[in-house]
Computed example of a mutant assay.
Amino acid sequence: MPVDFETHDPGDPRVDLSEGTNARQLLEFLLETPTVGYTPAELAEETGVPRGSVGPTLNRLEAAGLVRHKEPYWAIAEDDRIASAAASFLGIEAAADAYGDDWYAQNDGWDEELPDLSDEERD
């Protein structure tokens, strides 16, 4: 992912956990089995994250306190933040499963006839 070179701080422990990122894929997989450790090769095979990206991504996750490492194994960190992240991921996934195929998803263009309220006078 390209970054703004002038503002990029390699010591910054923040990690992009947006859907589809390698960090998100690894973290979600590790959240499924919090007491199990995996080698980078196993994680690459299980998640589909390219082998060359697994190590650097795990290092960023470790710097952010989200995973733990006992050579050569990696596991999810033991921290309340992890439980919170897991609840968020699982909640979003549950909502998507429940409502991802609702009337709006089945009817493209449903929003085309909505009035533009941004130009309306406020009372």
Score class of each variant (00 low, 15 high):
Met1Leu: 11
Pro2Thr: 09
Glu6Leu: 14
His8Asn: 08
Asp12Thr: 07
Val15Phe: 04
Leu17Met: 07
Asn22Val: 03
Arg24Leu: 04
Arg24Tyr: 06
Phe29Met: 05
Leu30His: 00
Leu31Ser: 05
Glu32Phe: 01
Pro34Phe: 05
Thr35His: 07
Val36Gln: 14
Gly37Ser: 12
Thr39His: 03
Glu42Ile: 04
Ala44Ser: 04
Glu45Trp: 06
Gly48Ile: 03
Gly48Ser: 03
Val49Arg: 00
Val54Pro: 00
Gly55Pro: 04
Pro56Met: 05
Thr57Glu: 01
Asn59Ala: 14
Asn59Ile: 08
Arg60Tyr: 04
Arg60Ala: 08
Leu61Val: 02
Ala64Gly: 09
Gly65Lys: 07
Val67Cys: 02
Arg68Met: 12
Lys70Tyr: 10
Pro72Asp: 10
Pro72Ser: 06
Tyr73Asp: 14
Ala75Lys: 04
Glu78Trp: 09
Glu78Leu: 15
Ile82Cys: 06
Ser84Leu: 15
Ala85Phe: 14
Ala86Glu: 12
Ser88His: 14
Leu90Met: 13
Leu90Glu: 10
Ile92Ala: 05
Glu93Ala: 07
Ala94Gly: 08
Ala94Lys: 10
Ala94His: 10
Ala98Thr: 13
Ala98Gln: 10
Gly100Tyr: 03
Gly100His: 02
Gly100Trp: 02
Gly100Val: 01
Asp101Cys: 07
Asp101Met: 15
Asp101Asn: 13
Asp102Gly: 09
Asp102Lys: 08
Tyr104Cys: 13
Ala105Trp: 04
Ala105His: 14
Gln106Ala: 15
Asn107Glu: 11
Asn107Trp: 11
Asn107Phe: 14
Gly109Arg: 08
Trp110Tyr: 15
Glu112Ala: 13
Glu112Arg: 15
Glu112Asp: 10
Glu113His: 15
Leu114Phe: 11
Pro115Val: 08
Asp116Val: 15
Asp116Ile: 06
Asp119Trp: 06
Glu120Asn: 10
Glu120Asp: 09
Arg122Ala: 12
